[in-house]
């Protein structure tokens, strides 16, 4: 990520230490993950110690300190989705993307994550691909959706 873009985001928030989380979120939106250089830049400009930034970035699951894929796949394994076959859906997702839950493939195409519950149990099993909700989905259907993203 180029440092000009990082500075632009920091300046938008007037380099205010109180906007730390907002700044980190915007960098992550831009870049998919938080590279160390970006964190160092934020730490220096906002005068927030690196220990504090690491505390915050490891606390919230939203932040990723390792590279993430272009496509984010969230498979709900909450109770309702679980009893409606989320396990088999997850297997299909892992099969087509080639990565296990919590991992990213080497081409940075897919990141697969399991989530607890996304609040639409009536639609279960649910898979969210790049923010798009796929409800009542069959393993074969999600395979097709993900094939198109390859």
């Amino acid at each position: 990520m180029d440092s000009g873009k990082i500075d632009q985001i920091i300046n938008k928030h007037n380099a205010d230490a109180g906007s730390l989380i907002q700044i980190l979120l915007e960098i992550q939106n831009e870049n998919n993950w938080l590279p160390k250089e970006a964190l160092t830049r934020v730490s220096e400009t906002l005068a927030v110690p690196m220990s504090r930034i690491r505390h915050i970035t490891t606390f919230y699951k939203t932040f990723s300190l390792v590279p993430r894929g272009r496509h984010e796949v969230h498979v709900c394994t909450g109770t309702a989705c679980h009893v409606r076959g989320a396990e088999r859906v997850l297997e299909a997702v892992e099969g087509v993307t080639g990565v296990n839950a919590g991992e990213t493939d080497p081409d940075l195409n897919f990141s697969v994550e399991t989530v607890g519950c996304i609040g639409c149990c009536a639609l279960g099993p649910v898979v969210v691909v790049d923010g798009e909700y796929h409800g009542n989905i069959l393993p074969a259907e999600i395979t097709k959706v993900l094939q198109d993203k390859k």
């Binding site: 690196m50 220990s51 690491r54 505390h55 490891t58």
Partner: peptide, 9 residues
């Protein structure tokens, strides 16, 4: 010095 901090939760 801020050499030390908590990580994870």
């Amino acid at each position: 010095a801020n050499a030390l901090g908590f990580i994870n939760r």
